Amino acid sequence: MIKVQNLSYQIGDKPILKDISLTFKPHTIYGIIGPNGAGKSTLLKHMMRIIEPSSSTVFLKDQDVTKVKVKEYAKQCSFVFQENPRDLDFTVEEMIAMGRYPYLDYMGHTTKADEIVIERIIHELSLEKLRERSMLNLSGGEAQKVFIGRALAQETPILLLDEPISMLDVHNSVELLNRLKTIKDQHQLTIIMVIHDLNLAFQYCDEIVLLKEGEVLLAASRQEVLESEILQQVYHHRLKIIHDHGNTYVVPRANEKEA
């Protein structure tokens, strides 16, 4: 559905992305992982078109995205930034309603169909008690759920998330990822997210893309990546893989001698 082909990017003389080619399959959760400075967010920003990609490097349904009108792209691909403006005096319901903008008429009127979608998103993310609350009065985690709700309200088949759980505690991180997985299954979404928490990445993502210094070192199923020596090399053999009753956990090695 979405494909990256021979994508390179540099700032000044510094290469950030190096000849990246990836194909993202429909109805799959992808986790983009790698150490700091690997180019994870930069790759995602090209797919978001926050950084406009070079011609013939990012494709949506085999069409060069640079040839797709912005409003039409917004009907196919929604996204949530790593950092979102919080100084907005809109209610939670109003913020989620903004996700309907690709479908509004030239007067900006919402329809009954729009209202049904907004209500569904509020319910799916358990935001009923916050719907009249101003964004100014939300915690960082609450605001993040609202921004994800706004993206879901666009009803796109592709959802791009840049570190969606970076502002959440463990409980809320797990709750949000569980909800995203359920929503993905219910609505047949493709979710591509940059995620730093390796343990949660391998619990919730179907496929993993491993980046280092702007290059794709590995793109495979989570099990293949877990078993790969490349993963350990990238993280300097500081990872311990624990298998327990059908679950797999990734934890840092605390003792140098364990490496």
Rank of each mutant, 00 (worst) to 15 (best):
42 T>I: 06
17 L>N: 07
176 L>Y: 12
70 V>C: 02
109 H>Q: 13
124 E>S: 14
177 L>T: 12
221 S>G: 14
24 F>K: 10
114 D>L: 08
110 T>Y: 09
235 Y>L: 11
99 G>Q: 02
174 V>D: 05
170 V>C: 01
45 K>Q: 11
66 T>D: 01
38 A>W: 04
144 Q>V: 09
52 E>L: 06
83 E>T: 13
97 A>F: 02
125 L>V: 09
56 S>V: 02
236 H>C: 05
97 A>R: 13
172 N>Y: 15
248 T>G: 03
178 N>R: 15
133 R>H: 12
66 T>K: 09
44 L>F: 01
63 Q>W: 01
156 T>V: 10
155 E>T: 13
90 F>E: 00
50 I>P: 00
33 I>C: 00
152 L>Q: 09
119 E>P: 00
133 R>D: 01
31 G>K: 10
141 G>S: 07
259 A>Q: 13
112 K>L: 12
68 V>S: 03
80 V>K: 04
171 H>I: 12
21 S>Y: 03
3 K>E: 14
112 K>Q: 13
224 E>F: 04
115 E>C: 04
38 A>M: 06
176 L>K: 14
95 M>D: 01
107 M>R: 13
9 Y>S: 11
235 Y>R: 11
102 P>C: 06
5 Q>N: 10
216 V>L: 11
6 N>A: 04
18 K>S: 14
20 I>P: 00
12 G>D: 06
90 F>T: 06
17 L>K: 11
252 P>N: 13
166 S>Y: 01
74 A>W: 05
64 D>G: 04
226 L>Q: 01
96 I>A: 06
165 I>K: 00
46 H>P: 07
199 N>C: 09
126 S>R: 13
18 K>M: 04
76 Q>T: 04
125 L>N: 07
211 L>F: 07
236 H>N: 13
186 Q>F: 02
46 H>R: 11
78 S>G: 07
31 G>R: 11
190 T>V: 13
223 Q>T: 15
79 F>P: 00
59 F>W: 10
16 I>A: 03
67 K>T: 14
60 L>G: 07
147 F>S: 02
135 M>V: 14
96 I>C: 03
220 A>D: 15
179 R>K: 15
128 E>W: 02
13 D>Q: 15
72 E>W: 02
107 M>F: 15
15 P>N: 11
218 L>D: 11
59 F>P: 03
99 G>F: 06
143 A>I: 05
44 L>G: 00
121 I>Q: 08
1 M>Q: 07
110 T>C: 02
28 T>D: 03
167 M>S: 12
90 F>S: 03
243 H>C: 01
200 L>T: 12
68 V>D: 01
247 N>G: 01
58 V>D: 03
29 I>Y: 00
171 H>L: 08
174 V>I: 15
252 P>L: 13
59 F>T: 08
176 L>W: 11
182 T>A: 13
140 G>R: 08
56 S>I: 02
26 P>C: 04
183 I>Y: 11
91 T>C: 04
83 E>H: 14
94 E>T: 10
98 M>H: 10
107 M>S: 06
142 E>V: 10
41 S>F: 05
240 K>D: 05
226 L>N: 02
188 Q>W: 04
204 Y>Q: 06
